[in-house]
Design a binder for these strands. Structure first.
Lengths: 340, 340
DNA sequence: CTGTTAGCGCCTTCAC
DNA sequence: GTGAAGGCGCTAACAG
């Protein structure tokens, strides 16, 4: 920190008044005379005085910072989520401490520790895909630091969260494909241990059952969500005696990787398989070879809602702590890119 | 901040020793007996003690935070840059305060004020596209807060920056197209007031001149970088009597928007125009209809280098301040996607 | 080896 | 209307 950064004390010294007068003047306290107030404000702006937040935080025991931990920022989905978060946070004079877990549990733990250390007022998290130990989240709970999970939710009791209803999205996807006369609908799911995968699978079965179609386990394969993993999963489907005529994928990236794989491996026949996916990433708009439909999960809205909820929890904290777990499942919406 | 957050004082009280002993024990100070050290560490971890950074910052006059202001995070280019920044910062125990200016000058100014207020040790900035007033940057300079600009650089004297050489990139692009026997190469540039546009135009002319080709101003048009703007720019080229047989675009997004526009407006003839662009965004890998080549500008590397430079400046600050402006222009590399 | 003390910048209570 | 004093959690002299 540069030596010459102006402080209240410095302003007070130059004006030959006391520190508390300066403080009050800058805060427009009613008891300060107009003349002094003007003199103080003038000098403050001349010196480009900026209150030292580190001191204020320290004193107030409140940082007006919210920590945000997301798996990554390169997916448009999370980038949009950040925008929703930032917009609400800034409007309420909170600063956002934004970090990427890179989908790594260890890093996520470190980041949670950093958040605690920085004394953020609350935390928003979308958990890493390989996070199975929830100790770090429990720690936050135990220390009464409000947490709101979004989109990727741990299986823990009594947590606050905002997410998109995978069940509803899956139902829409299945209905859409059935209406298009597709008979053999496959599912390329994520890793089996992922709650998000389990939910999708369950919803997939339910959606079929709901329409009185029978569920064929050989049509369900898993990708580890890497490019290669998705290629392998696709190959598994291509190897079937009865190849599917439609595929629902875990998300758009999986869909793109699968399509690319199919194309490059020149596997004829399945070329015009219809794919429906999740996320509705904007890049799909540029592709010829994109999913024909995708489940929009409104990441921006999720970010907004989660942040509003968190801020509410922060307000309430001063009062008594009625620990009601709040959660909301947003209604997703199937967006149709091409009629095919 | 929750009431029961453990402090040094609390640990000291429980162990009936002094606060400073606790502090030293946790810092592995040589003068503390092994026994006490163990007792302290044990209790600290039982209580999940996390040092209060806000107090440490306040005391040390150093936050170990670096502020990062980028135009946005949804472009892969900047997301990759963030990764480079984070990786270096974390390795050196710095926290990153990451913000988006959303390409808005006003927001950028607010963010700079917030950075000053948070007393970040230094700042990394890629400036918003409409930033023309540099007052907020000068303020940082004046208050001796080290700043390193990356990729999008303001026209200011004596600044530190890391960027990619647009001149070299443009030369590679032009050479590539000429070698492919293209005769009429157009340029779809960004807004004229942008330094980055001016540089590209200048480099374009030089690159042509260098190969003894004549420069035809009617082949240079501007996009405001929006989807519509790029469409309009494309239309201008389509309206020419002699349409170009190759186009160099400001970046990949412009290229994609132009291609999409051309396709949707069914403007025959120019369908197979060759496009070369800047940025080499990974999404292009998924497209059939992508630029045939793109200038890779190594955003991750830029992030790394800029952060290293900033950390160097922070080290030096304790010493005397020899204000030599450091800058580095990275060599970009034309990546060829398709031979066409 | 360990304890005591002072002070970082700011806000707040109390006193004038 | 204004000033003086205390304290937030921590570190770093200076004492023992």
């Amino acid at each position: 920190m540069p030596e010459n950064t102006p402080t209240l004390k410095e302003i007070a010294r130059r004006l030959n008044i006391s520190v508390s007068t300066v403080s009050r003047a800058l805060h427009d306290h009613y008891s300060i005379g107009l003349r002094t107030k003007m003199r103080v404000k003038k000098l403050a702006s001349e010196l480009n005085y900026e209150p030292n937040q580190t001191a204020i935080f320290f004193k107030q025991k409140k940082t007006f910072m919210i920590g945000v931990i997301l798996p990554n920022l390169s997916q448009d989905f999370f980038a949009a989520m950040v925008n929703g978060i930032e917009d609400v946070a800034y409007k309420n004079n909170y600063t956002v401490l934004l970090c990427q877990s890179r989908d790594d549990q260890e890093r996520e733990k470190q980041l949670v520790a950093a958040m605690r250390s920085h004394r953020v007022d609350g935390v928003l998290i979308s958990i890493a895909k390989n996070t199975t130990d929830y100790g770090h989240f429990e720690l936050l709970q135990r220390h009464k630091i409000p947490v709101v999970f979004l989109d990727r939710i741990p299986k823990m009791p009594d947590i606050h969260y905002i997410a998109s209803s995978l069940g509803a999205g899956m139902q829409q996807a299945v209905d859409f494909l059935l209406k298009k006369k597709h008979r053999r609908i496959a599912l390329i799911n994520g890793p089996e241990h992922l709650p998000a995968s389990q939910e999708r699978l369950e919803a997939f079965r339910q959606a079929l059952w709901h329409k009185r179609r029978k569920y064929d386990p050989s049509l369900v394969v898993s990708s580890d969500l890497s490019k290669e993993g998705s290629g392998k999963a696709m190959q598994q489907l291509l190897d079937l005696k009865h190849t599917p005529d439609a595929i629902i994928t875990f998300n758009d990236y999986v869909a793109l990787d699968c399509l690319q794989y199919a194309k490059r491996s020149k596997s004829g026949g399945i070329g015009n398989v219809s794919i429906v996916s999740f996320a509705n990433e904007p890049i799909c708009d540029y592709m010829d070879n994109a999913p024909i439909a995708s489940v929009e999960q409104f990441p921006y809205l999720q970010g907004e809602k989660a942040t509003r909820l968190l801020l509410q929890l922060l307000e309430k904290e001063t009062g008594r702590n009625d620990d009601v777990a709040v959660h909301e499942l947003l209604q997703p919406q199937l967006v149709i890119h091409r009629p095919a």
